[in-house]
Design a protein around this nucleic acid. Structure first.
Length: 487
RNA sequence: GGCUCGUUGGUCAAGCGGUUAAGACGUCGCCCUCUCACGGCGAAAACAGCGGUUCGAUUCCGCUACGAGCUGCCA
């Protein structure tokens, strides 16, 4: 049998990495077996609907490559299934009535006031009450009369107070709950819309979903869904509940975490492939120790039996590392295309940006890191002459001054400012003096960059800077060291 | 509060009765090197606790602790 999964988000805002991972796993589970992956928008809560949220979902899935296989025709492609559209067909009410006829559900006319009189318990600021099945006792005539009178109603699932219900999760095994723990949940709301609890079962069945994959938070309501399947006489799907993704405090990811949504991560300079790769490994691991996977490779390797049961902390430090791996592996042209805007943010001068990009490629983890690496090209920063002193290079202010003075005329005389030529020239000086490379390179690099660390060596920097600017900076260094020595 | 689920280094994780308990990120050290980074090598660092079952438990069972989720006319 062909596997069919679905991603069923509610359009209430940005797409969390948790949501994205759910979509990814659903996609991978289907594709690994050559199955189909569907998209279904769960917008039955009109109050929480956020304008533009569906666009975000579409954009994200498209960008990450999680394209769905089926849906209503739309602009030459597939649109998602949309629950609010399906409501218009009367499908949910039809199935609700079927349950009512079977005695598995019933009309409830209780208003807010009556509901408020139910025995409630306050735990941690939340009111907890269990519906008392009051309307289950209504006679057929009373129900008909209420309906005829246009009295607002909801439809509730009728769950017995005795016995227990069991469902099977592929990862967690059999989970059994006493029926007394299960509230008579609302299936159809008074506005005529189904609740998620009902729509999800009806849709998954009518869409022939074979594997229901969703977050852990649904595990405790799954027995209720199982009762629905049983009541209808439908075969239940394979359930796969996914462990949570938490923040560094082991709390559910919140918007405030700042790095919790896919779009936020893109803004922070992460590349799509790295994000997808990273979240794939948050709750799943392959048989070998491999960590770098393209989407196609994930499809090939993904075995849902290896999904973990315990929650995973979203570690942005490791994501940064992985992003860096992607940048290093990227071909230069692609890298340059993406890096250029970031370089141009700090460098306005007419310099060889490609050379700069190349210097930085193996040194950054995310694009915004570029700025701190290249700012000195634009302008020589103020620096302390203490920077000339380096224990390992055996340099200090005096030796540096000497080196710079010695080397200046040579560099002034030289016209070839290519990295190679400069390096050869300086090497000659190193040999003459019988010192270590660093002994002369360190002060020069310090003078031309004004920085402790640079993305390239002295000669490479000079190559990019050009003769005029390089000489200027070296003179500046001599000046600084001279005036300090004079004191 | 009740119910359900979870618990291997700081983090992601392998392990599915017998192992010196992998690997990765991060941290630290060394090497390479015209600085830093890359790369290479190495180090520190874990089975929540207590009881069973067993010749033998990280692995199976129970209890406790801790964490999380649910307990909505939200999904």
């Amino acid at each position: 049998m062909k596997i069919r999964t679905r991603y069923a988000p509610s359009p209430t805002g940005k797409m969390h990495v948790g949501n994205l991972r759910t979509a990814l796993y659903e996609f991978l589970i289907a594709k690994h077996e050559g199955g189909d992956f569907m998209l279904r928008i769960e917008d039955t809560d009109q109050e929480r609907f956020v304008e533009g949220a569906i666009d975000i979902i579409n954009r994200t899935l498209e960008k990450t490559g999680l394209t769905h296989d089926e849906g209503p025709d739309k602009d030459g492609g597939y649109g998602p299934y949309v629950q609010s559209e399906r409501v218009k067909t009367g499908i949910y009410m039809k199935y609700a009535k079927e349950l009512i006829d079977k005695g598995e559900a019933y009309y409830c006319f209780c208003d807010k006031e009556r509901l408020a009189t139910l025995k409630t318990e306050v735990v941690e600021g939340k009111e907890i009450s269990i519906y008392d099945k009051h309307c289950l006792g209504l006679s057929k005539e009373e129900v008909e009369a209420n309906l005829a009178a246009g009295k607002p109603f909801v439809v509730r699932q009728n769950i017995p107070n005795e016995g227990s219900t069991t469902f099977k999760d592929e990862l967690y095994g059999d989970i059994t709950v006493d029926n007394a723990e299960l509230d008579d949940m609302i299936l159809i709301k008074s506005d005529g819309y189904p609740t998620y609890n009902f729509a999800n079962v009806v849709d998954d069945h009518t869409m022939n979903i074979t594997h229901v994959v969703r977050g852990n938070e649904y595990i405790s309501s799954s027995p209720k869904y199982q009762r629905l399947y049983d009541a209808f006489g439908w075969e239940s799907p394979v359930y796969i509940h996914l462990p949570l993704i938490t923040d560094e405090n082991h709390k559910k990811l919140s918007k405030r975490s700042g790095h919790s949504s896919f779009e936020d991560l893109l803004e922070q300079g992460f590349v799509t492939e790295a994000i997808v790769n990273f979240i794939a490994l948050l709750g799943w691991s392959p048989e070998d120790n491999r960590e770098i996977f393209s989407l196609d490779e994930l499809i090939k390797e993904f075995d849902y039996h290896r999904i973990s049961k315990s929650p995973a902390v979203f570690d942005i430090v490791k994501l940064r590392w992985m992003n860096g791996e992607y940048l290093k592996a990227m071909d230069f042209d692609t890298f340059y295309e993406m890096a250029e805007p970031f370089i141009k943010q700090t460098i306005k001068k007419d310099l060889d940006l490609k050379k700069i990009a190349n210097m930085v490629k193996t040194r950054i983890e995310v694009f915004p890191d570029i700025a701190e690496h290249v700012d000195f090209f634009e302008e020589l920063p103020e620096y302390d002459i203490a920077m000339y002193t380096h224990k390992k290079m055996k340099t200090d202010a005096a030796s540096s001054l000497q080196v710079l003075k010695d080397v200046l005329p040579v560099l002034e005389a030289q016209d070839d400012y290519s990295n190679d030529a400069l390096y050869q020239t300086l090497l000659k000086y190193v040999e003459e003096k019988g010192v270590k490379n660093g002994y002369v390179m360190w002060p020069i690099r310090t003078a031309v960059s004004g920085k402790q660390m640079t993305p390239a060596g002295a000669t490479e920097i000079m190559e990019v800077l050009g003769k005029e600017e390089s000489i200027k900076r070296i003179k500046k260094g001599i000046e600084l060291l001279d005036s300090a020595a004079a004191v």
